[in-house]
């Protein structure tokens, strides 16, 4: 996200990949386990306009620190040493720009392998580099993504080349979009001064919780107790935590207040944004007695406005 804010990226919707891409690279991403149908629907075996034979029309490369289950669907596996992505991308950018460094191995990869890979990228009708949490969650974080986007831009001088992140939760892209159009920023926003401020190191959830700053928490459709580092999540047990969730989770266990809601995409309709930013309307297949989550949120908003205006009245009374 920060990398996108800082530099942008060459991207496209996944149908472009299906229709035109003949080179697919999964870098630090293991779709076979994390996005099981990505390969068949969009990137690997999908048939499209210039790929009438699907898988046969594509070369698939997996770059990862270990032989993941995705490797067996690839044509080529390149093993990289953990934490070396930035270095490798830097060297690949050098190679792309015609500078061959004087070394045999980079990040555990033979230099010749990288030269061949860059050559493939240059010659592709459309090359696509999908990168996953294996990259964004190692040290270096957004510097890694920045290097990837920069590599994509460099490649655009030679071929059609896309760099696309493999996003996790089904509507994490929607949450970034909504926050962006209402606040200007896609995450880590603070309204403490009455307007949106953005500072990832300061206002992102883990940092806030580690500093034990929040005095009340509202958790909407998330599992921080399970997913956040324990040292951060622990703070939620010490403050009143309000949880809106259709189902019991480790987080509802520690909640002070539980507000049941319909399950989006299961018991109620709603919009979600795919990893390539295409919004799709979800259906409801089950019935639930509870309201959709925006309804209790609206009630809370209206209640707080009322409490505030009553307080103002009594304050005003005192002053007079």
């Amino acid at each position: 996200m920060v990398a996108l804010q800082l530099g942008g990226a060459p991207a496209a919707t996944l149908g472009e990949v299906k229709n035109r891409a003949d080179l697919i690279i999964f870098w630090g991403s293991n779709p076979a386990e994390s996005h099981p149908r990505h390969f068949t629907r969009y990137s690997g075996t999908a048939k499209g306009r210039m790929n009438p034979n699907g898988r046969k029309d594509r070369h698939v490369v997996v770059v990862d620190i270990r032989k993941t289950p995705s490797v067996k669907y690839s044509d080529e596996f390149i093993q990289i040493k953990p934490g070396n992505d930035y270095e490798v991308f830097t060297v690949m950018r050098m190679i792309a720009n015609g500078h061959i460094p004087d070394t045999d191995m980079v990040g555990g990869i033979p230099l010749q392998t990288l030269i061949d890979l860059v050559e493939r990228c240059k010659k592709a009708r459309m090359g696509v580099l999908f990168f996953g949490q294996g990259i964004t969650e190692t040290k270096g974080k957004h510097q890694n993504s920045t290097a990837i986007y920069q590599f994509g831009k460099d490649m655009t001088k030679h071929s059609k080349f896309l760099t696309l992140p493999m996003r996790g939760h089904y509507n994490v892209v929607g949450s970034g979009n909504v926050m962006c159009w209402q606040t200007g920023y896609p995450f880590a926003v603070n309204f403490g001064k009455g307007y949106p401020r953005f500072n990832p190191g300061e206002f992102s959830v883990v940092d806030l919780l580690l500093r034990r700053e929040p005095d009340v928490a509202v958790i909407v459709a998330a599992e921080p107790i399970d997913h956040l580092p324990y040292a951060a999540a622990k703070h939620l047990e010490n403050i009143p935590t309000i949880v809106l969730d259709p189902r019991k989770t480790l987080t509802t266990k520690i909640a002070k207040v539980i507000i049941p809601v319909k399950h989006a995409g299961v018991s109620v309709e709603g919009t979600a944004y795919r990893m390539d930013h295409i919004p799709i309307k979800m259906q409801a297949v089950l019935e639930s007695p509870w309201p959709k989550d925006d309804i209790p949120l609206s009630t809370i908003i209206n209640r707080i406005k009322k409490i505030r205006s009553e307080e103002k009245k009594t304050d005003g009374g005192k002053a007079a």
Binding site: N171, S175, V178, A217, V218, A221, E269, P279
Partner: peptide, 11 residues
């Protein structure tokens, strides 16, 4: 905190 596993109206 959260938002990633619900719909746009809730977000």
């Amino acid at each position: 905190y959260g938002l990633a596993a619900t719909d746009v109206d809730a977000q």
